[in-house]
Write a protein that binds this DNA or RNA. Structure first.
Ligand SMILES: [Mn+2]
Ligand SMILES: [Mn+2]
Ligand SMILES: [Mn+2]
Ligand SMILES: [Mn+2]
Lengths: 216, 216
DNA sequence: TAAAAAGTTTAGACTTGTCTAAAAAAATAA
DNA sequence: TTATTTTTTTAGACAAGTCTAAACTTTTTA
């Protein structure tokens, strides 16, 4: 069907498209840890296969066919992450690299049965939505805690930074998905925030507040 | 670590080694559906990595390091097959191709946890033994039903032919792993056999009798 | 034990995906 | 609106894995 490299390019373009309509060669190169020249080569192949819209120097967008493939890879990635955490008891900061490999297992029947086995989860361990077999998922907006004012509250529902270091920090602070938080104070000097989480108060930096998302 | 191609070569050499001490270039080519020239190229690479013992025109054997890798791939293959059948309810004739992909997922921790999740199964859905994390498994001998005489009996414990066609045939005849069988008659003319399996009598050809294995 | 057949290796080519260095285009600044 | 900087593409090369055709070894047969 598609090669592993092609799948990774499509997935990266999809993710980058969430922030910018047109995705640039350099953005893709940075995301995939490769060189711009290599990206240009691959963009030509993907355009030949009608998976992206590509005009020299203009950046790219996914075609409907390309987006469908990207969403299927993302579905697999997130279902496997859910499996690793819920069934094999890995921690949420440990599963991404494994899922990067597992997302390329090709069988559609396998992933549909895995979905059923886990009772059709709607979100992966990091709060990201899991597309269904047709690529559909509810696009509900999240906003960073940094956007809250004093006395406003919300439920932790996602992260903007998926790095193990950040996830481990959150875990240690008990700032995990589903927790209800309320902003009790914003420090003028550095815009750091003091949160009420269950019985305790937690002080987080502006940096953390920008990368921790709540449902609106 | 090792490439997908290297892993597949090592696994094939391991399986072929069970029948012949020295494995030939053509045997490997046939098993991997490739050409002898390609095999020779890869044998050089594997010999450079000290994973096989190779002397031109003499065939190959695995080194201890090569065998260790082969057994680890086989462990992964069989554990995933067990998972697919026991947890996702695939049939035993449906899982091999999926496991061919899944056996290359690299994480050792993942496979050890999968093993634990399934409570350390000793055999895959086809009766083949699952090596433990150190590559050890009990090597108990099986023999084909064809080797039995009238009135002798045994328990179906494995297959020599893993093709979906054969597995589907066995399933339909209720000749599945664990069933107790007894030979009630051997037809002189074609050496076909009549088996007593639970309440019913089943007539199998010599060909089937040679590919269906029982514990001795 | 020499000739024929079968099996294996070498030579040279091709594909995929990658890279560096240089050229070209686009964006930004003066 | 030129000149400079940044971004992107092209040109040419390389590694992995594969192939066909030809050359070699080894084995079998007569
Ligand atoms: Mn992930
Ligand atoms: Mn995730
Ligand atoms: Mn199998
Ligand atoms: Mn099996």
């Amino acid at each position: 069907m598609n090669t592993l490299a092609e799948e990774n390019y499509l997935k990266s373009i999809y993710h980058l498209s969430l922030n910018d309509v047109n995705v640039s060669t350099n953005q893709i190169a940075a995301a995939l840890n490769t060189k711009a020249a290599s990206v240009t080569d691959m963009l030509k192949k993907l355009a030949d296969k009608a998976l992206i819209n590509y005009a020299k120097y203009q950046g790219v967008t996914l075609t409907a066919a390309g987006e469908k493939i990207a969403l299927h890879i993302i579905r697999k990635h997130r279902l496997w992450e859910y499996f690793l955490v819920e069934k094999l008891h890995f921690k949420w900061d440990e599963v991404h690299e494994m899922a990067e490999e597992m997302e390329h297992i090709s069988s559609i029947e396998l992933i549909d049965r895995l979905d059923k086995f886990m009772d059709y989860p709607k979100h992966d361990p990091h709060g990201d939505p899991i597309p269904d077999r047709n690529g559909n998922f509810k696009k509900y907006e999240l906003k960073p805690i940094a956007a809250l004012n004093v006395n406003e509250n919300g439920i932790i529902s996602g992260v903007r930074d998926h790095s193990p270091a950040f996830l481990q920090y959150l875990e240690k602070q008990q700032l995990t998905i589903g927790k209800k938080i309320k902003v009790t104070e914003i420090i003028d000097y550095d815009l750091s925030m003091i949160l009420q989480v269950e019985q305790t108060e937690i002080h987080i930096s502006r940096e953390v507040a920008k990368n921790l998302l709540i449902a609106i």
